[in-house]
């Protein structure tokens, strides 16, 4: 089984059109699958040609997103995140 690639979503809060949901910013998940390059929506939204960016489906546990006291910590959330919002990180310790 392939090693999971863990990624942390940047915790930035820029103004303007962004497709990275606020509730995932600063959270760490792993790459569920890679989707290939897509034009950057943050540029498309303002009438500019979109720079091609890799898009990834990242999977987060409910515990990571909402804290360990969440009702079902092992349930998951998958979201598509562009790579300029992602920073590779070391795998967290086994939970």
């Amino acid at each position: 089984m392939a090693e999971r690639q863990f990624m942390r979503v940047r915790a930035d809060m820029p103004p303007g059109h962004v497709r990275t949901p606020a509730y995932l910013r600063g959270k760490t998940g792993w790459v569920e699958r890679k989707l290939g390059p897509f034009p950057n929506p943050e540029e498309l939204a303002y009438g500019h040609p979109g720079t091609a960016l890799d898009l990834m489906r990242v999977r987060f546990t409910m515990a990571e997103v909402w804290g360990p006291k969440t009702a079902f910590p092992k349930d998951t959330i998958d979201a598509e995140i562009y790579t300029h919002w992602l920073e590779p990180v070391e795998p967290p310790h086994a939970t």
């Binding site: 303007g16 497709r19 929506p41 943050e42 498309l44 939204a45 303002y46």
Partner: peptide
Amino acid sequence: YFTVDGLRRVLE
């Protein structure tokens, strides 16, 4: 003429 992200940007 515009993109879906252009549509969303104005809605937002």
